[in-house]
């Protein structure tokens, strides 16, 4: 079992996060197509949501209802950036959310998807 990273996400969320440090992790790009991993379940909460990965048995807390919205809409958009836009985020917020999405990708919570 891998151990979690302590490396902070890159300041510029449009750059790719550090190399995947989990087996099954993915390098994130805001300009690629993503979707929630089918092995992950979301439980909405006041603060955002719990996200649980049944395969890695990893629990994450999404600490913003908007992040939940973005994650839920990833599959409906050609890029993660478009999903952020659809959720009403501006460019600065999209950069912030990109860091969170990069962590979710690195931990296999969200996975790349064919844009078609």
């Amino acid at each position: 079992m891998s151990t979690p990273t302590t490396a902070p996400a890159p300041a510029d969320a449009t750059t790719q996060a550090g190399a995947a440090d989990w087996a099954g992790g993915h390098e994130f790009s805001l300009d690629a197509a993503w979707t929630l991993n089918p092995q992950v379940a979301l439980r909405p909460e006041r603060f955002g949501a719990l996200a649980y990965h049944f395969g890695t048995r990893r629990l994450s807390f999404l600490k913003s209802p908007h992040l939940l919205t973005v994650v839920e809409r990833l599959a409906d958009h050609p890029t993660a950036r478009a999903a952020c836009l659809d959720a009403g985020l501006d460019a600065a917020q999209t950069a912030t959310f990109g860091k969170a999405l990069a962590t979710l990708a690195r931990t296999d919570m969200i996975v790349p998807r064919n844009p078609a």
Binding site: M1, S2, T3, P4, T5, T6, P8, A9, G48, Y52, T56, R57, R58, L59, S60, F61, L62, K63, S64, L67, T96, F97, K99, A100, T103, L104, T107
Partner: peptide
């Protein structure tokens, strides 16, 4: 154990 960015907190692996 994972210090996270502001929007996310992730538990230690398995048996999270």
């Amino acid at each position: 154990r994972t210090p996270m960015d502001d929007l996310l907190a992730t538990s230690a692996a398995a048996s999270a």
